[in-house]
Design a protein around this nucleic acid. Sequence first.
DNA 1: GCCGTTTTCGGCCCGACTGTTTTCAGTCG
Length: 576
Amino acid sequence: MPIHNADVATVFEEVADLLDLQGANPFRIRAYRNAARTLSQLSEPVAEMIRDGRDLSELPDIGDDLAEKIEVIVQTGTLPLLEELEKEVDPAMTELMDVPGLGPSRVRTLHDELGISSRAELTKAAEEGKVRTIKGFGEKSEQNILKGLKDIGEEKRWLLSRADPVVHSLKAYLEDHEAVEKVDVAGSYRRRKETVGDLDLLVLSDDGVAVSNHFVEYEDVVDVASKGDTRSTVRLRSDIQVDLRVVPPDSYGAALLYFTGSKAHNVALRNRAVNKGMKINEYGVFRVNGEEERIGGETEEGIYGLFDLPYIVPELRENRGELEAAQGGHLPNLITLDDLRGNLHAHTTDSDGQDSIQAMAEAAKERGLEYLAITDHSPAVAVAQGLDSDELRRQMDAIDELNEMMVGVRVLKSIEVDIMKDGSLDLPDDVLDELDLCVCSVHTSLGLSEKEQTERILRAMDNPNFHILAHPTGRRLNQRGPIDVDLDRIMEAAVERGCFLELNAQPQRLDLNDVYCKRAKELGLKISIGADAHARDELDFLKYGIDQARRGWLEPGDVLNTMSWNEIKPLIDARR
DNA sequence: GCCGTTTTCGGCCCGACTGTTTTCAGTCG
């Protein structure tokens, strides 16, 4: 079984958790966590790097020791150190560290004093009032633990699309206050991550007390977790946590940078500061020789400038090479929504969409798109009333008629054809041949082994009517994980055969993810950003696709549908 | 355990807030 980067990262995270519980050297623990992060964000598979004889210790935060441990994990699937640690520390205890308010120290105390090593045991002890008897814990801690235990079961990250309306109304409410000069939403929201865990609001104001008071009085606030002059935290009725920071003008840029993150980006930037005899925190940038001298902090641009770096957009701030790229002057010229010239994934009332072909085409035209592929389902998706050959041919005729009538947008004849379990396509080749292009996807047999799933898709790709692989991993955020598939093999095969992969822009899919988008770019594989719209307004999902594409370093030239149809058509025909 | 254009040893980001203290440890981001 191939070992993926994520598998190695998981082993290192488990090691770090167990070392944490042992009270080991915190820097050693951090080293394992840093390495896990490097691995989970690395776009190239380490197994492949090992096979190619590459030196893993050249990766950031990987030294000789961890490079060797990675090789062991790739070869054996496990690590002797982890097995040792699991004998010394009850691994069940790690689940206690996820309880808000509990870190390794307090978990250890709970274990040593009350013999607690699971959430169930902790719940029981807290309910019986035993936790408050331990030194360092009190009644309040006990209540918070019970609350944390309750919340943890319901913890979900929010889709970006669900956070958007919440952000807009809260922002408007804050901006309405006279002491507020400016409001920015920082954090993963600003980095346009596919999901956000909480919202980080930054307010420019000289009156922190007034702003904080106004903030906690917002009508949707149901719980005030903390409240101070510069920082407050609340929970909204919709169960999202909002952190507010009030910042004066001269440190606004520093605060925006700091609270936008990512943490990894900030740490990397800070290390650069230290090496240059400077210090950077949320208040500004300081020169530290003898006494501190403030040298910047008003704007993000100014701060990057102090490190001789150009401005780095929030979407890239993940410490995945953006600082090095900025330094070398080769930051990507990221794609924007305006670069898209068409959309190659849309449904109509002919299958499970809500609008007619014409309505969808007009909506595409209104959004400035030059072409729109109609990709209704094939028969295998019975619940969606997928089209059989005859129905598809009738739809093709309707599209021909529409194209004669409509000006300014071209409707393409297409299909979202199912990839069957055996790797065949769900419609015969003679009808697929008549289409402008085919979008292919997996909707069934999601539970196949990685080998079976990969070979199934590769077999489908052998068909010359296979052009775009839609939502390649099938994941649904907060609902189900990706199918087991060797995407690296799929992507390499797609490059060889002249196929493309989709970045499905539905907010709950956003599939491919950012890391694989970057991998595709490195392989020279073009991505189609597809709205997968089931209604007119869902063409606006494209903006979420663009967000994800930018996080994946994609430039206009990396994306198929920044090309005109006349440029794309020969690429499709070359397969046939 | 990683890292280095002042270092191969001795650093490792750091400040706000809470709860339990009575000057601070732990957690969080």
